[in-house]
Design a protein around this nucleic acid. Sequence first.
DNA 1: CGTGTATGAATGAACG
DNA 2: CGTTCATTCATACACG
Lengths: 197, 197
Amino acid sequence: MEQESLNGTFDDRVMTEEQMEALRKQIAIYAVLCDQLVFLHNSLSSVPLLSSGMNSMGGGYFDPMVASSSAHGMSTRHRWTPTSMQLQILENIYKEGSGTPNPRRIKEITMELSEHGEITEKSVYNWFQNRRARSKRKQPQTTTITSGQADDAAVTTTDERESCGGDSGAFESYEHILFPSPDLGIEHLLNRDKFID
Amino acid sequence: MEQESLNGTFDDRVMTEEQMEALRKQIAIYAVLCDQLVFLHNSLSSVPLLSSGMNSMGGGYFDPMVASSSAHGMSTRHRWTPTSMQLQILENIYKEGSGTPNPRRIKEITMELSEHGEITEKSVYNWFQNRRARSKRKQPQTTTITSGQADDAAVTTTDERESCGGDSGAFESYEHILFPSPDLGIEHLLNRDKFID
DNA sequence: CGTGTATGAATGAACG
DNA sequence: CGTTCATTCATACACG
């Protein structure tokens, strides 16, 4: 019956700076690790880094449809699902002040993304629309209006917005990665599989 | 970037869940990336490029939860669970012709509900959304209902699990990431570059 | 302890 | 462009 009392009474679930620092450190380490791995490989082997048997290992583990993007077998998929790479690219573009999805740009992006999976211009368009709409769903401070530049002026140009402290958080907010993103260069590595075999 | 706690909120320098999620995402990507790199290497080279930090792909993932290493029993990790009280209130409001979840109303409701347990506007919003969707799905079941829960519309009940294995499911799983040990024994890995030759 | 079900949450797509 | 709908996913919870 009373299963409600187990909930914490705190209003906002947050992370302390220390914890955040830890995460950052981890990421940094990973970044270095990846870098080292590539370097390492190149150092001791002239073989082009590629994949090949990768997916044949017991239970494909990652990046599947990227390779077989054109696979229209299970086309029953109505809803397009971006691959992580596509997502990364999109996010990247989004962050690059390209808050202005030029009609022309869309095509470019679509082209780019099509390399990593099936995609349509419409989807790209939708994505940007959604992205923008959802980030804007930020909760304005309670006190007074502060309707200064609620528009698409210079939204978070200096440094991502952070500290939504307060409580309740926002509605549909999702953005701000506050540190160098990897860019997912893995694709380049995987790409090599075209040369082998 | 030094913004004092002029906000007057409870916490000063903390991270919201969303931000944390972002970090996790990044880490997850890196983790996968590293994994792939190692595997790739091993695939085409017999050189012992071990893999340590991360798990070896094959199904299992990493260790559960790491962020709260300090044993801060914060139960409200994800998925908010409405207390019976909250539920009652919500249902009540829902029935009151509130088929129109007023945006402004949400805040009020959230306020109200926060008195009975932790709640966020987002959750309230979600609740209404889900509620509506759910009812709609049950409606078309009219005619020959007969309380039959067996026939049902077979609306993708529990089978649409779909090809998570061979699909992009793996990558998309970073939702609730959990990375390798926080300590990162990558030194071993990095060290190798000195041993190998 | 493993399996099935209910439901909160995320998000692509559509509507006005 | 902002809001809403529909679909999917993952987790909490119940059953055996």
